[in-house]
Design a protein around this nucleic acid. Sequence first.
DNA 1: TATCCAAGGTAAGTT
DNA 2: AACTTACCTTGGATA
Length: 306
Amino acid sequence: MHAGRIPVAEFAGGFDLQATVESGQTYVWDRPDGEMFADGLAWGGDAWYHTVLPATEAATNEPEVLRCRLVGDALEWEASTPDAPDHLRRLLRLDDDLDAIVEATPDLPLLERAYERYGGMRLVEDPSFASLISFICSAQMRVARIHGMQMRLAREFGDVVTFDGDTYHAFPTPDQLADATEAELRDCSLGYRAPYVERTAEMVAAGEAHPDEARDLPYEEARDDLTQFVGVGDKVADCVLLFALDFLEAVPLDTWIQTAIEEHYPDCDRGNYADTSRAIREQFGGEYAGYAQTYVFLFLRTQRSG
DNA sequence: TATCCAAGGTAAGTT
DNA sequence: AACTTACCTTGGATA
């Protein structure tokens, strides 16, 4: 067991762990109390969160357990690897300068309210395959159920990892998921998404394509590239670019953002995805437009329940 | 208790 | 290229 503390003072602009992992951008984290994405959950707690790093991203080539919580003025962590701080910095984008990002954001009332309410929320950099599958599953689905699906997939098809006396499940590798049948995936309550997940996993497992290949392309080409995967349209592609492949300018046009465009920025509605995307990206300041999108998404989605 | 409805959309078929 | 429609499942709302 390796453990340590990282002072929050090291994170420019602060850090809100709960807002970051429960904002609906990542579905690879969980909390042991079963309250992940719980409806009406009070914000501001100091719960532990854990994830399993894929073997392909670990120096040991084994899945590694990472867990952390925010206590007082530090991020406290425990892990199966001494490399945890580096992994956490990458996965939770702890080196992003939030002050500079907010500073670079246009002065729009909606953005200011969202930043005010959830200041310290950071984007994540999820492992790309898990992000791809997560957002294929996200079609017409609530965030709590998307999370439930990913946990189920890990439990059914992923490696079992034990750490500090507890059992964890890694997200399935492309091979493991490609081996699952459509019927087995439907049994995991994926519904019509089951064949999408199966066929996309097969594409990656067979070496036909990999989401990481989009990382070095120009933004709009990268988005087009990701749509080659079955079940991936423009919106899901934007999510993977933003939440896994470091494209901070990507603005996924989901139902919440579409509503925000109608109510606050009607001039940005250009009638089709590509042009509307370009317009709202400009409206949100370009380079970090994806940060603005995620703050707005979380803010609007949680307004009703507080 | 039964029925209805919408949830971070996409693919396939039609005009 | 723009427009329709079908698609699984489930929790919460409505009757």
